[in-house]
Design a protein around this nucleic acid. Sequence first.
DNA 1: CATAGTGTTATAGTTAACTATAACACTATG
DNA 2: CATAGTGTTATAGTTAACTATAACACTATG
Lengths: 107, 107
Amino acid sequence: MILDGVLKEGDPLPSVRKVAAEFRVNPLTVLKSYQELVDEGLVESRRGLGMFVVEGARNLLLDGERQRFLEEEWPRVQEVIHRLGLSADDLLNNAPRRSKPRKKGSG
Amino acid sequence: MILDGVLKEGDPLPSVRKVAAEFRVNPLTVLKSYQELVDEGLVESRRGLGMFVVEGARNLLLDGERQRFLEEEWPRVQEVIHRLGLSADDLLNNAPRRSKPRKKGSG
DNA sequence: CATAGTGTTATAGTTAACTATAACACTATG
DNA sequence: CATAGTGTTATAGTTAACTATAACACTATG
């Protein structure tokens, strides 16, 4: 939500209790997740008021997630792509060039 | 290992006990994972002998994993790429076109 | 002060996955 | 049969994450 701009910097996060109710989950579970955001320096907690998106959170998140994605997730995704014999073409255009025709349409 | 051809069809999987020892893990845990492969029809169990890669397993796996990847994983990866302001094009072709130059080299 | 909304802490219980250990069932080999 | 290697089942214990419930602490508002 922060990355997508749904939550701007300074905005309050939906309250622990509301999220807990909406997802039928224990408030403690929500709180713990929110605390992780605090630990990452993205969110700050103001007792009695709520939890708020920190100034600069979006850039911090963007940089951090970019790094994590490029160094950890993407390499693994690339391995999978390679293992499955997929091509960049297959993935980007919804119109794959006619490659080797498949034996059968399986379903 | 099956996709990469390390395990050919008909080959025995490393025994439950060996894997358990190698990864310092309970044999039951390994067994359960192997059972999942049996449930997927990729592997068959021969009591007293071992677990073996089924004939046709590689193609079955290839088709199944292709579908799973294209329908589930890749869309999510694309969302992340988009959210992070990265380009799938740049990531797939290793030769990124010169796009907007970044403000700073961060480190 | 009372109220209604926040985050926070505490205590006890539940659950799924995993561990530890032992024993059982089966097969090829000699 | 004995042996050594397989998969399999059973029992009890451990652990991390989550749940249920209640209470505490704080803030803006009236």
